[in-house]
Simulated assay, not measured.
Amino acid sequence: MISKNQIEINFKSNDKNQVLKTLLYLTFNIDDFKWAQKMCLDTINTSADEDVIGVAITCIGHIARIYKKIDTALVTPVVERKRQDIRFSGRVEDALDDITIFVKNNSYH
């Protein structure tokens, strides 16, 4: 098991594959949806790498599907900003569909 501290260290890596693997690891293995959601949102907001941003958007959809909850007030604006970028529009649509399908009432309380 990789600790949250190690995950945060991995996100600072210059190795794109390490960052991608870490995104997927935290999405499927960390039992803290708020923290996983935050890490994905931070990545979407700060990464300059197209692949990393794309996977982080996809992971938001996975989090919605796995946990059946997500903070739409935090997630939706960040994801929506990427919709206008043709590189991410398909992933954004998929993530928003996952939120709509799997998150009851589309919000976290």
Rank of each mutant, 00 (worst) to 15 (best):
I99Q: 06
N45L: 07
K68T: 07
G54L: 11
F28G: 10
F11R: 11
T100C: 11
D97E: 12
N29F: 13
T43I: 05
T43P: 01
R65D: 12
S89D: 10
V103Q: 12
A73P: 00
D97T: 05
T27A: 11
K4W: 09
K16P: 01
A64S: 14
Y108E: 09
V19W: 03
V79T: 09
S13M: 07
D98V: 03
I2T: 04
V103F: 14
T43F: 00
I66H: 10
F28S: 13
Q84M: 14
A73K: 01
A95P: 02
V78D: 04
I63D: 11
T27C: 11
L41E: 06
A36P: 03
L23Y: 12
Y67E: 11
N29H: 09
F11V: 07
N106E: 15
N29A: 07
T72Q: 01
A36M: 00
V78L: 06
D71I: 03
S89K: 08
D15C: 04
D42Q: 14
I53G: 02
S107K: 15
I60R: 00
L24G: 03
V103C: 15
A56D: 03
I60H: 08
T46M: 03
S89E: 10
Q84C: 13
I7T: 00
V52C: 06
K38V: 00
A95T: 05
L41G: 02
D85C: 00
N10G: 01
E93K: 14
Q37Y: 06
T58D: 09
N106W: 12
N10W: 04
E8T: 07
A73I: 09
S3Y: 06
E8W: 02
I60S: 01
I2Y: 07
R65P: 02
I70N: 07
A95L: 08
T100L: 14
I57H: 06
T27S: 12
V78M: 06
K104Q: 09
I86T: 08
D85E: 15
S13A: 04
H62S: 09
K12D: 01
M1Y: 05
